Each structure stands twice: as C-alpha cells, then as structure tokens.
Amino acid sequence: MIILAATPIGNLGDASQRLRDALASAEVIAAEDTRTTVHLLRALNIENRPRLIPLHEHNEVAKATEIVELAREADVLVLSDAGMPAISDPGFPLVAAATAAGVTVTALPGPSAVITALAVSGLPTDRFCFEGFLPRKPGERRKALAALAREPRTMVFFESPNRIAEALADVATTLGPERRVVVARELTKLFEEVKRGTAAELTDWASAGVKGEIVLVIEGAAPVAASLDGGVAQVLELVASGTRLKDAAAEVAEATGLSKRDLYEGALAAR
C-alpha cells in the first residue's frame, strides 16, 4: 500500500510513535527531499536505512507509476519535508494514480501547518478553505484576492517571508484595511509567533521585515445584505462578462444569501 506519513513541521517531539515505527520498518520511502529524510532518521535515532526514492514537484507525475507498481508488492512510505504529503506538497498525483490502479492508500496523521495556524488564529474554524501559496506577481496576487473578496469562509494561505508585507498590503487594498488577518510564523518552533490584527495593522508590522515559515489566515467576508433587484443586477453583470447564468446565480446567491432560484428566474425575466 501507499502510506502518507505526516512529519514534524518544526518541533521534533511531534513525531508520533506510529511515524517512528513506520520509519524503523520501512523498506521503501518516497521522499520530497531524501536528504531531509536522512536527517530525520538520524534525529530520531532510527538505524533503518531504507531505499529512498525522490518524489518532488518536478518528477512526481513521472514517478507515480513506478511507485504504484512498487506498492503492489510492498508498503511504500511517502514523506514531505514537513507536514502531510499531498497538502501543498508532493503526493497528490501519486495518490490519484494509486487509487485509479486499485492500490490501497492510507495515512499516518500528524502535524499540519494549515490546521495548526487555523486553530490558534482566533478566527472562525467551523468553515474554512485552504488556498496554498498566493501568486508571486503583484497583479496576479491582487486578482486572486479579488476573486476571494466575497468568500465567507476563513481562508488559509502559505506565504514567503520575503513577500508577506506586499501580500498584506494587497489584502488591505483588495479586501479592505479592516479585514481581520493572522500571521502565524515558525509554528511549533522556538520562536513561534502568532500576530493578530487588521490587514492595515499587520501591513505596518510586516514592513520592518518578517522571518521564518509563514501561514496567513484571513477572515471570511461578512454576509452582504442585498435586495433581490440588486442581486439580479449582479447576476446580469457576471453574465455580461462571460459567466453562465446558472453559475452566476449560484455565485451571487452564495455571496448574498439570496435564493439562487429567485436570482436565476429574475435574471431570465430581465434579459
């Protein structure tokens, strides 16, 4: 089978006993960075020296078939550098190939930067979405944020310390300076810090420079009180820009709380 194993995101003490046992008995490990895996084995005082197969963003599609075939005969442990494989890390193409081939996939749960940051953020946790890394280029980043302007769920992102100040400034510009945000950096490590405030406040804070691995958590949009006529107008604007009527009605309904059916029928009548 394929075994996805979560590894510590900072504190080595978070390595579970199941992870330690799996590392000690593994014959084959597919690893994002084999050097990191060797360091982990040594740090945990595990003497096992399994076969290591590199599985990273540049080769994971090509390697998937080979690893799936190996997993028909023996367990293959899959590791990313930190956290759970396949969550903004290599692993998804392998899991997809394995499930398509009828090979069992299981997981050894453990540390996750996404869930850890969300849990300590103080923002709503009942509904959330993970958006991975924001685009590097400013224009593309602002466009991505604009597309999420009416997203009601708490949003979680990864971000580089070199771009966090610019990203926060774009959040303030695109989503509003009063939108609540949280920057969680160096989670589980010695210098862990969770900074909470508005987008404007944290933009000022980050302008002096921020170091470490960062998770950005952004408050979802507040429900917008809207009239049916106003909602229909929004639907028609989306349709004019190329969105299908059914999809436009669904999008506006989610953002406003208005009935999708009423929006759809109202837009039809107004066309």
Rank of each mutant, 00 (worst) to 15 (best):
T116L: 00
A117C: 10
A117F: 01
L123I: 11
P124L: 11
T125G: 15
D126V: 05
D126N: 13
R127V: 03
R127T: 11
F128C: 08
F128N: 12
F130C: 12
E131I: 10
F133N: 08
F133E: 08
L134G: 13
R136W: 02
K137M: 05
K137D: 03
P138N: 13
P138A: 15
E140M: 12
R141M: 06
R142F: 01
R142A: 15
R142N: 07
R142D: 07
K143T: 11
A146K: 12
A149W: 11
A149Y: 07
E151R: 15
P152F: 04
P152N: 10
R153T: 09
T154Q: 08
M155G: 05
F157C: 11
F158I: 05
N162L: 14
R163T: 02
A167I: 09
A167R: 05
A167G: 07
L168I: 10
D170N: 14
V171C: 11
A172E: 07
L175H: 09
G176D: 10
G176V: 09
G176L: 03
P177N: 08
P177C: 00
E178V: 04
R179S: 05
R180P: 01
R180H: 07
V181M: 09
V181P: 12
V183M: 13
V183T: 06
V183N: 09
A184K: 08
R185N: 08
R185W: 02
R185T: 02
T188G: 12
K189N: 04
K189I: 03
L190N: 09
L190S: 11
F191C: 06
E192N: 04
E192Y: 00
V194S: 01
V194N: 00
K195L: 14
T198E: 02
A199G: 13
A199T: 07
A200C: 05
A200D: 14
L202I: 06
L202W: 08
L202D: 13
L202K: 11
L202T: 07
T203Q: 10
T203F: 00
T203R: 07
W205H: 09
